[in-house]
Nucleic acid binder design. Structure first.
Lengths: 133, 133
DNA sequence: TAATAATTGCAATTGTGTTGCACTTGTTTT
DNA sequence: AAAACAAGTGCAACACAATTGCAATTATTA
C-alpha cells in the first residue's frame, strides 16, 4: 500500500518514508512535527522534517497552518497536481486543539476581483468538535 | 484619527500605539512582526509584539495565519465583537508573497456536519495578485 | 565494481513567539 | 501637589519550531 503510493508519486522507498506514510494512513489525522517526533522516538527530527517536506513537494501530504506556531500536515485526498491543496475545509477545535479535515464539505468557489489569478484556496473553521461538545 | 480609534476601542494612547496604528492605516496592508521591526528600528521588538497583542485583544487588528511561519495582522473592518475575525477572505500572492484583504468578498457560509459548533472561519486564496501579473 | 546520487544523523543556527523583571511613565487618590 | 498605584516600555533571556551544513551511510547507475 505505502509502496504503491510512494511509487506513484515518484518518491523513493525508504524505511522512514514507509513508516511515516503508514502512520498517516493509519491515524488519518492532521499531524505536526512534534507529534511525529514523539511517535518515532528513535528517528531523527530532521529526517522526519525532511520527509514531510519531500511528501509535501511530491503531493503526498499538504501543509495546513492553523492558528498555532506549528505547521501541520495531512494526507492529500482530492489534491490536484497543478493545485496542491485539498478542496475541503479544515476544522480547528478550540478545546482539544485538534485539526481535522471536513472531507464531506467542498469549499465553495469564489469570484475573485479582476486581476487576481487563482491557484488554490484554504479554509479553516474554528469551533468545538463533536468529541468536545 | 488614531486617537479616536484608540479611544473608541478603550486602548490608552501611547506614542508606540499611535505610531503602529498610523502605520497600519497608512499602509493598509497585512503586516507581520518582522516587517514592523524593520519599519521601526528604534522601537523594541517586544513592545511592538505586545502592542499587536493589545490591538488584537481590543479588536483593532486581527491575526491571519497564511502558509508561512509568521503570524500576520490586519486592521479590523467588519470584525464582530463576539466573533473576532473578518468576514472577507485573504489573498496570498505567490510572487510578491504579500498578503491582502479581499474586502469586497464575503466568505460563503458553510453547513457544518452535526456535532460541530461554529466560532469563526478563515479563508485564504493563493494565486498571483494584480501587481504581479 | 567504481562512480554517482540520494538519504540520513548529528551539530549548529536562525526565526518567531513569549516571559520576567526592573524602570519609566501616566493616572488616581488623598 | 505629593504619594500611591497601575499601565507601558526596554532589556535579557528563554522556548520551541524551522532550517542549514556537512560528513557518513545507503541506494542506484554506468
Amino acid at each position: 500500500m505505502t509502496e504503491e503510493i510512494l511509487n506513484k508519486k515518484e518518491v523513493r522507498i525508504t524505511p522512514m518514508r514507509q513508516l511515516l506514510l503508514e502512520f498517516f494512513l493509519e491515524k488519518n489525522k492532521v499531524l505536526g512535527l512534534s507529534e511525529l517526533e514523539k511517535a518515532f522516538p528513535k528517528s531523527d527530527r530532521v529526517t522526519i522534517y525532511r520527509t514531510l517536506k519531500t511528501f509535501e513537494e511530491k503531493g503526498i501530504v499538504h501543509g495546513i497552518s492553523n492558528g498555532t506556531t506549528e505547521m501541520k500536515y495531512a494526507l492529500c485526498h482530492d489534491c490536484q497536481v497543478a493545485n496542491h491543496s485539498d478542496f475541503h475545509p479544515h476544522f480547528s477545535c478550540l478545546k482539544c486543539e485538534e485539526l481535522s479535515c471536513l472531507e464531506s464539505i467542498f469549499i465553495p468557489s469564489i469570484d475573485l476581483p479582476g486581476g487576481y489569478s487563482f491557484e488554490k484556496v484554504e479554509m479553516t473553521i474554528q469551533g468545538v468538535c463533536p468529541k468536545c461538545q
